[in-house]
């Protein structure tokens, strides 16, 4: 999953009013790199597929809240 996360350092001005964030992140999900369906792509079991929301582990792209605990 870590490999799906991109990280960059945003512009930091000398007179920014608020304490700076160290970095920003965004996700590039694996479907961006799979342009056609390869043969014999490994599959989750049906139970797992329901849990992960995809039939193929190669397409699994989870997302975690940036605000721990979600909101306040």
């Amino acid at each position: 999953m870590e490999s799906q996360l991109r990280r960059y350092t945003p512009f930091r001005g000398p007179f920014d009013p608020c304490p700076p964030v160290p970095f920003k992140t965004y996700v590039v999900p694996p479907n961006q790199f799979i342009t056609f369906q390869p043969p014999d792509l490994p599959q989750f079991s049906l139970q797992e597929a329901l849990k992960y929301g995809t039939l193929w582990p190669a397409l699994f792209s989870p997302y975690e809240s940036k605000c721990k605990g979600g909101g306040k």
């Binding site: 945003p10 001005g13 009013p17 608020c18 304490p19 700076p20 964030v21 605000c67």
Partner: peptide
Amino acid sequence: YKLTKDASVC
């Protein structure tokens, strides 16, 4: 932009 760029979601 200056006021929001470093703000957390909360």
